[in-house]
Structures are given as C-alpha cells and as structure tokens.
Simulated assay, not measured.
Amino acid sequence: MLLTLAWGALFFPGLLALCTWGLRRARPEWTNFDCLMISTRVVSSVQAVLATGSGIVIIRSCRNVITDRHWLSREYVWLVVPYMIYDSCAMYLCEWYRTKDEGRRHTLTIFQNFLRQNRLMITHHAFILFVLVPVAQRFRGDLGDFFVGCIFTAELSTPFVSLGRILIQLKQQHTLLYKVNGVLTLTTFFSCRILLFPFMYWSYGQQQGLSLFQVPFNIPFHCNVANAFLIAPQLYWFSLLCKKAARLFDTPQAKKDG
C-alpha cells in the first residue's frame, strides 16, 4: 500500500512536469497555461489507460462476480488516491496560470472562482476519496472485485475527452479529427459510463439466475443507492457532451441557412 501510494505521488506530478518541460522546449511560443493544460490532459489519459487496462484484467480474471479475487482490484485503488489529489491540485494550477497569463493577481477570489467553476468535479473527486476508496478497500470485505474492475473501465472515455480539449486548445475544432473524436467520445462515454451499470446488474443476474429487471430487487438497498450516486453525474456529463456534439454538427447547416 505505502509503496503504491508513494509511487503514485511521484509518478503523476513527475509526468506532468516532464510533459510541461517538453512542450515548453518544443513550443516556446505557447504560454505556460497552454503547456500546462495540454500536459494535464496527457497525464489524465495515461491514468485512464492504466485504469482501463487494470479493469479489463480484473473482469477477465473473475469468473465468479461475487467471490473471485484479483490483487489489482485493491492495489490500483491505492494508485487512485494520489492521482485524485494530484488532479485537484493540477486543476487549480491551471486556473492560477490562466489568470496569471491574463495579467490578473493571484488572490482569494481566484480560489473562490476555481471552487465555484469546478464544484461538480471537486465533489466527484471528494466522493471517490472519502466514500469509494473506503468502500473498495475495507467495507466490502473480500467480495466484488469484478465490480471494482468494471468501475475502472469507466475511464476508457477519458483519453478521447482529453484529446477533444487539446484540439480546442489548439483551435482545431474545424478539423475532421475533432469530429471523429467527438463521435468516439460519445460512444465510449455511453458504453463505459452509462451502459456499464446495466452490464454489472446483468452480470450479477447471470451469476444468480436472475433477469436484469429482477436484480435491483434482490440486492441490498444501499447498493442501488450507491449506483444511483455514481451514475447521476455521468448522465449529467453525457447530456453536456450531447449538447456540444449537437452544436458541432449543426454549425455547417446553420451557416448554410444563414
């Protein structure tokens, strides 16, 4: 545990520093904010690949979705802890550099604006650290590694989301790559963050001889509540992605009508 925590505490900030240094050398005309923003997306993508890969290994290894064990289901959670702390700090650092590049001073107002603009993401990180991590490491006992692996695979959409943000930062919204990436973002997000929950219910049902619709009535109430809390922000973020996609593909027609 301690070794994994220490490794994560060094790896993610170190990768951010390395990427930022490399971008400053390769693109000296870019601002500090541009280099840092793109670097944070790269780090997020790396973490997403690691999480998704871990999740796939766990899922494939657990034939019994209730009792089968895999060491990654617990070990990778300890890597998530320093990542969530790093990511919160990195988001604030991006805001600090953005305001600095605009010529504004670093004041308490900047911190308050950061909290207000990122309240949902900060709440999401806090929920993972103070609720999901204790549940995954202690309260669930020796059961449910399969479901932990499923949750890890939710990160599959993150590299596509990150690439979209990078293309926006580089003002490449008009390119075919941006549109294709938008479709892939919607597809992976819907598959791994929305359909993931019916899949977990279905997998449990297959193990217990229940239909998908019977599962919610045959598991503890708190499991349904926890899944509701997990899927609610995903549905909200997916609606935002759909709105952005609609604006993207409506733009040519709007220009034509104008």
Rank of each mutant, 00 (worst) to 15 (best):
A6Y: 08
F11C: 10
F12L: 04
F12R: 02
G14N: 03
T20K: 08
R24F: 07
A26F: 11
N32R: 11
C35Q: 03
T40G: 05
V43E: 01
S45L: 03
A48C: 11
L50Y: 07
L50A: 14
S54W: 01
G55N: 03
I56N: 09
I58Q: 03
I58E: 00
I66F: 07
V77R: 04
V77T: 05
L79P: 02
P82C: 06
Y83T: 02
Y83C: 03
S88K: 10
S88I: 06
A90I: 01
C94T: 05
E95A: 08
W96F: 09
E102H: 14
R104D: 14
T109K: 13
I110T: 15
R116E: 14
T123P: 06
H125Q: 02
H125W: 00
I128L: 13
L129S: 01
F130H: 05
V133M: 05
Q137P: 05
Q137M: 08
F139I: 13
D142A: 12
L143I: 08
G144E: 02
D145I: 00
F147Q: 04
F147D: 00
V148A: 02
V148D: 04
E155D: 06
F160S: 01
S162H: 03
R165L: 10
I166H: 01
Q169T: 09
H174F: 08
V183Q: 13
L186M: 01
S191P: 08
C192F: 14
R193Y: 00
L196M: 04
F199S: 15
W202G: 12
W202D: 09
S203F: 07
G205V: 00
Q206S: 13
Q207I: 04
Q208A: 15
L210A: 00
L210C: 02
L210N: 00
S211N: 12
F217S: 08
P220R: 04
P220K: 04
C223I: 15
A228H: 15
F229T: 06
I231Y: 06
A232R: 14
Y236M: 08
W237Q: 02
W237C: 01
F238R: 09
S239H: 05
L241C: 11
C242D: 13
C242R: 11
K244D: 15
L248G: 03
D250N: 15
